[in-house]
Nucleic acid binder design. Sequence first.
DNA 1: CCTAATATTGTACTAATTGTATCATTGTGT
DNA 2: ACACAATGATACAATTAGTACAATATTAGG
Lengths: 139, 139
Amino acid sequence: MTEKKLTLQLDFHSGLPIYTQIVTQIQSQLANEILKPGDQLPTVRALAQELRVNFNTVARAYRMLDEARIISTQQGRGTYITEIPPPEVTKKLQEETLIELTDRFISEAYRLGFTEREVSQMVRDRLKVRKEAKVREKE
Amino acid sequence: MTEKKLTLQLDFHSGLPIYTQIVTQIQSQLANEILKPGDQLPTVRALAQELRVNFNTVARAYRMLDEARIISTQQGRGTYITEIPPPEVTKKLQEETLIELTDRFISEAYRLGFTEREVSQMVRDRLKVRKEAKVREKE
DNA sequence: CCTAATATTGTACTAATTGTATCATTGTGT
DNA sequence: ACACAATGATACAATTAGTACAATATTAGG
């Protein structure tokens, strides 16, 4: 299973906020492959209890990591490391990733009977929808 | 008999609730005639066991589909695809399926850090690659 | 055949587990 | 004393799981 103990070392007298320490240590464990994409992190309450900290402090750390797209928090489900390619991957590898992703998408659409024209048009539409949504969000 | 294997692919880390994934995948299989009117779906417990989820999660998905008049659940009998799904319903479902598929693809690409331009360009490229491959295949 | 017991199926309600939102409290620096 | 950031407390919402039940089908006895 993807259960981890996630041993973190907090320093309560360092002056650094707890949530910052949690964030950076998870980031570093990810960078060192102690944590891997897909891994489930402890629940906010479980980790909080282990660290002797309020669970909202853990939740705050998780939220920052979530906003940074490093983890994915899901209400009622749990928290998982996202499938982000490690920072050391090259641009070329990233390109290959997008190719694979795109090909899977196209294959699935074709398998469901959609035509090239329909797929192409839908991608344009949905990209546009997102862009417009983002614009409205800023207002 | 009208028994189907009903292979569903769940992603437990996608952020989408399990019941939503079940609903949309059954919708798409209906829209694309992998499932047909009159087909019996697996029992809530059977499907739950196969998917390794609680049977109430399947029941919730079935209930949503039932409310949408897409399936008919009958206590003590089983669950069946509704007999006369109007053509415009399946057409609409099909469209929704492609939207859903496309949005998932775009979200994933964005999450991996690709831009709208890159995604758009890659879709064009890969569609073109496929078309050309198909042309060569005919020669 | 008919009928009653049993099994199978979906339903309803509840509980448990998760993250979220909001505000209060604390503590530190100026 | 004040301002501000960090942390804690409390209530909430979403998802999934547990348990008991009702409706139907199937099977066993006669």
